[in-house]
Nucleic acid binder design. Sequence first.
DNA 1: TCAATCAAAATGTCAGGACAATCGGACTTC
DNA 2: GAAGTCCGATTGTCCTGACATTTTGATTGA
Lengths: 254, 254
Amino acid sequence: MPKPDVDPTAPLGLRVDRSSPVPLYFQLAQQLEAAIERGALTPGSLLGNEIELAARLGLSRPTVRQAIQSLVDKGLLVRRRGVGTQVVHSQVKRPLELSSLYDDLEAAGQRPATRVLVNTIVPATAEIAAALGVTEGHDVHRVERLRLAHGEPMAYLTNHLPLGLLDLDTARLEATGLYRLMRSAGITLHSARQSIGARGATPAEADRLAEAEGAPLLTMRRVTFDDTGRAVEQGDHTYRPARYSFEFQLLVRP
Amino acid sequence: MPKPDVDPTAPLGLRVDRSSPVPLYFQLAQQLEAAIERGALTPGSLLGNEIELAARLGLSRPTVRQAIQSLVDKGLLVRRRGVGTQVVHSQVKRPLELSSLYDDLEAAGQRPATRVLVNTIVPATAEIAAALGVTEGHDVHRVERLRLAHGEPMAYLTNHLPLGLLDLDTARLEATGLYRLMRSAGITLHSARQSIGARGATPAEADRLAEAEGAPLLTMRRVTFDDTGRAVEQGDHTYRPARYSFEFQLLVRP
DNA sequence: TCAATCAAAATGTCAGGACAATCGGACTTC
DNA sequence: GAAGTCCGATTGTCCTGACATTTTGATTGA
C-alpha cells in the first residue's frame, strides 16, 4: 500500500540565501507560498515536521516556525498539534486587503479609467470634519471622480482629505488610484472603518451613473487612518450593482 | 518641562501567573489589551522597551515580543524600529471577524428574533452543488429564516448545508445563530468567501421583508469552509438597507 | 472483539543570548 | 545659525536548547 501524502517537501528545491538582505524566514515563506501556488504542495498534504525541515535547510526551528506562521496568518496553512502542518484545501485568494477599487479593477484586467470631475478645496461640513478629525469649517480637499470600465460608468467616488498631506494633481489622479498616490507620498496606511449599504439613486446620482432615479445603488463609506492614528481620507462611494460587487475572503481569527 | 509620555507601564500592575495553564504571552497580551481598553494606556503613548518590560515581569524577551505581536496583529499597537511600541490612536473596534448576523445584533443589544420558515431537505441545484462541493441532485439541507429586530423584519436568510454535519433543529435555530450552532457541533470555521451587492426586490422578496417591489435590497452571498477545506455552509441573504448595513474595520497587512 | 493504556510524533511554549538595522536627538563643524 | 555626523536607544532577526501538550496509532488487557 502506498504511504499517504507525507513529506512532499523533499523535491521542492527549497533553499535560502544567507547573503541576501531579505530575512530568512521571509525567503522561506515566499518559497513555500510559491510552491503552494504552482501546485507543488497539494491541498491537504502535510508539510513535514518543523525540526527536520529546519535541519534540512540549515535554519533554526524558530525561523522555520516564523515562516510557517506567516502563511498560517494568510490562511494558506493550518497547524494542528500532534498532527502537523497542512496545506489548506480551499480556494483562498486574498483575505480582504485594504485595496483600492483601481487596483481591484486593474487586477481583474479591466483597464479602469478615471474622470476627475471635481478637485477643489472646500470648508469641511460637520460630518466631514468629525470623520477627518479637523474643526468644522476648516479647509479640506474635495475630489469627485467617475470610475469607468470598458467605457461604462461603474462608480462615483467622492473623497475628502486633510490639507497638506498630499499633492492632489488631477492628471495623477486620473492615471492611478488614490491609495497608490498616498502610499507613494510616504503615508503608511494602517486601518479603515467601512460601511457598506444600499439605497435608491437620487436624481443627481442617477444622472451621474446613467441609471434610473430610484434604481438600487451599492454604497460604501470609509474613513482611512495611518499608523499614527490620523484620518487621512474619507470616502463616499456609490456603485452600480450590476457592474460591481464587493468580493472578499474572510479568515477566522483563532 | 514635563517629560513626554514615556513608560506609562510602571503603574499598570502587570503581572503573570506562572501556575496558570494560560500561556504567559497570552496573559500579558490580555492585560495590555485591558489596559488600553480602560484608558490606562493612552493612544499615542509609548509602551517602554521590550527588554526592560521583560525584566520587570520576569519574562524572556521572546515571550514579551509574542504578546506585543499579537496586539500588533489586532491593530492595537504599532512598532517602529528605533522608536518603540505605541498605542494606536484610532478607534479600532473589530477587524472584521467571521461573525454571524445573530451575534452582531446581540452585541448591539437588539435582541434578535428568528423565525424559521423552511427547514427541509432538497436536491442540490447546480449552483448549490458547485458551492458546497457535492454532486448535483445530491440531498442537502435547506433553511430559510426571517430575522427580526424590534419586531421589524430585517433580513431574509436562505442557507444550504451538506447533510450529516449538523443536527438542524428548528427550535435551536430560532434560539441562536447558525454559526454558533456549527461551532458547538465541533466544526472549526476557517474562512469564507463573500460577495456583497445590491439589487431591486423581487415581488416575493418584497413581500417577505415588507418592502415595495423594486425597492433597493442589500445582498450577501457566502460560502464558508472549515479548516479541512470542506464547504460547510452556503448562504444567500437579503437585507433591508434602512435597517442594516455592513460595518467593519480593515487592517492593512504590512 | 472491544476498550483502555501507552508511546511516538508533532506542534506549543519559554528561556537566554548575540548581532543587525533603523530612528532621533545631540553634538560638532562650517 | 544651519547643516552634517555620530551615537544611544529600540526593535528586527536569528541561534541553541529545553520541556509541555496534544494527537494518533499501536499495544495490551478484559
